[in-house]
Each structure stands twice: as C-alpha cells, then as structure tokens.
Amino acid sequence: MRTVPVALGARSYDVHVGEGALPKAAGLVPDINGCERVAIVSDANVDRAWGDAAAEAFAPLGSTGEVERLVVDAGETSKSMQRVGALLEEMASRKVRRSDLLVALGGGMVGDLAGFAASIYQRGMALVQAPTSLLAQVDAAVGGKTAVNLAAGKNLAGTFYQPRAVIADTATLRSLPEREYLSGLAEVAKYGFSLDPALLERIEACTAALLRRDPEVLEDIVARSVAIKASIVAADERDLDDRRIMLNYGHTLAHALEALGGYEQWLHGEAVSVGLVFASALARELGYLDAAEADRHRQVLQALGLPVTAAFDPAAIESAWMMDKKYRGGVRWVL
C-alpha cells in the first residue's frame, strides 16, 4: 500500500492507495473527536458489493460502533439539489450528529454528493472519501471539490471541503463494470497528456496490463495519478491562480457533452476522452501542438477502449460550454 500526502497546512490529509486498504480504514483515518456513529453514503450497486465490508471497517471509528447506511440511486442524475436535500433530511431523521463521521463510499457521483452534504450538514461534519471507481480514486475523491449539477450545467453548485482521509482500495476496482472502469482510464490519460510525460509512457507500455486490471500496475498508476493531483491541489487549493485549471484539460467539451446528454448518455470519462481529442486538435490548429502529438492522443485513448469522436449540434454545444466554470470574459480552454 502507498500513502500520498495532500499538503494543505491544517487541512492536510493522506490518500492511502492499494489492495486491502478498506479493511484497514479504522487505523488509517485520524481520530474524529466526539464521533459516536458513522454514516456511510453509497449507491445501491456499491452498497451491495462493498457496504458490509465498509461498515465493518469504519464502525470502530465511532464510540458506539453503530453505522448508518444511506443508499442513493446509482447514476449522475442523483447528483442534484433535490437528492442532496433528501439525503440531508435522511441524515437528520436518523439523528446523525455534526460530531459524527460521514463516509462517501462509491464513485465520483457519490463522492461529490456526500461531500457536498458533509460540507453543509449542521455547517460541516467530518468526511472520509472511500472511492470505489477508478475515476474517483485518481481524481474526484482527491482535492476537496464537492458539487451537484444544475439544469444549466455540471457541478454548478458546490463547495471546497477537504476530507480527513481518502481510502482508495484498488481491490474495489475488480467489481467495476467494464464501461465504468474504462471511463476512469481517461482521467489517468489526462494526467499523462497534460502534466506527466513519464506517466503517459507508462500507460502506453502497460496498456494490456491496465485493461486486465493487473493489481500491481493499478496501484502504481493510481498512486502516481493521485500524487500529480495532490501537488496541483497543494499549490492552488481553491482554483484562484489558474494552476488547478490544468486538471480541466479535455473537460470544457466534456462537461458540455454530459449536459446535452442529460447526464445519462455519456459517462464522465467517455466525455473527457472525446474532449481530450478535441482539445488536442484545437491546439494543433493553433500551433501549440504538432500533428504527431495530437495523433498520439487519439491512438492512446483508442487503445484504452475509449471513444474519440462524438456527433453534436454546434450551436447547442456552444451554448452548453458557455456555462463552463472556467469562464472569465469568455470560454477558456486548457490546451
């Protein structure tokens, strides 16, 4: 198991990556002063697969040993103001206290939804992220961004709220449906294209091992991806000086595609894959990237089993990306 620190002063925490991390959770999470019970938020699929193991692992963190399991519907459509409101009401009805611990057990949707709930419930309660999807382990669970979607666009209502720890057990990736697993590889590729050429070479060299979910390769790739994101977050926690914007490579088109598809047509990583190819083509046209590197984007993503094209109405997509959170006097592209 590897431990990656996220250095944020008083808000610092560790990301624990590797097979078997989940059963060790009670020894990896710092003491939560006054915690009596643990509440675990997950979707129905993750609760069936990992709910029992998570409840057993996190129960010792509360003085009573009691665990409340709060289950939401799977899918991006649950990431809404209506659903977070219902979740908060359920937490209150079960008498979850501010001094208790909330665990986000699941993929990016659950991490965003539960993280947002933790940040506003009784003005904030302790949060631990326990991501079970590749996309969440390498990206969504690290960095403290929480959000829900609005009709106007993705992640338009949210907070910055750091967890006390992240428990990224790569064993959970074995139970992921193939499409969801491949979706997560797009975020890994993003780091390679935009921030770490050595990681990109590693991806190219071990594509076959990644596709068969080799445990050692996964631990290495996840830990390296987390380390990249942790370094960016430590330098620009709240997106104030444009360093963290680098993490949005490929995401301007991706978020627009997701919105136009009603958050049901595209998985996030699939949309990011198309967005990466689009951004590389735009960079090539503007002279920022040569043709060989732009082609490399398409080749790597195709080899990982990801989509590289999409059909869309130009006027509709332009309207959608006008709500992009990077907007500042116009739509800004990470190239």
Rank of each mutant, 00 (worst) to 15 (best):
A281D: 15
A281G: 03
A281F: 05
L282I: 12
L282W: 09
A283R: 01
A283L: 01
A283D: 06
A283G: 10
R284P: 02
R284H: 14
R284L: 10
R284K: 10
E285F: 07
E285V: 03
L286E: 15
L286P: 00
G287L: 09
Y288I: 01
Y288E: 15
L289P: 08
L289K: 07
L289R: 10
L289W: 09
L289D: 11
L289M: 14
D290Y: 09
D290Q: 08
D290G: 05
D290L: 11
A291E: 15
A291I: 10
A292N: 08
A292H: 12
E293C: 00
A294Q: 12
A294H: 03
D295T: 09
D295H: 07
D295L: 08
D295V: 02
D295I: 02
R296L: 07
R296W: 03
H297A: 04
H297T: 02
H297S: 01
H297W: 05
R298N: 04
R298A: 09
R298Q: 06
Q299K: 12
Q299A: 15
Q299T: 12
V300T: 08
V300P: 06
V300L: 07
V300R: 01
V300M: 04
L301M: 06
L301F: 04
L301S: 10
Q302V: 00
Q302E: 15
Q302R: 12
A303S: 04
A303V: 00
L304Y: 04
L304A: 07
L304S: 05
L304M: 05
G305I: 01
G305C: 02
G305M: 02
G305F: 03
G305V: 02
L306F: 07
L306A: 01
L306N: 04
L306D: 01
P307V: 08
P307N: 08
P307T: 08
V308Y: 06
V308M: 01
V308K: 00
V308T: 10
T309D: 15
T309P: 01
T309R: 14
T309A: 13
T309I: 05
T309L: 12
A311H: 06
A311Y: 06
A311W: 10
F312Y: 15
F312T: 15
F312E: 13
F312M: 13
F312G: 03
F312Q: 12
D313K: 11
D313E: 15
P314E: 12
P314Q: 07
A315R: 14
A315P: 10
A315K: 11
A315Q: 15
A316R: 15
A316F: 08
A316N: 05
I317D: 10
I317E: 13
I317H: 13
I317L: 15
I317R: 03
I317C: 13
E318I: 05
E318P: 01
S319N: 08
S319E: 13
S319F: 01
S319L: 09
S319H: 11
A320I: 14
W321E: 01
W321D: 00
W321V: 09
W321T: 05
M322G: 03
M322E: 07
M322N: 11
M323A: 11
D324I: 09
D324W: 08
K325C: 05
K326D: 11
Y327H: 13
Y327P: 00
Y327M: 09
R328Y: 06
R328M: 04
G329I: 03
G329P: 13
G329C: 05
G329V: 03
G329E: 04
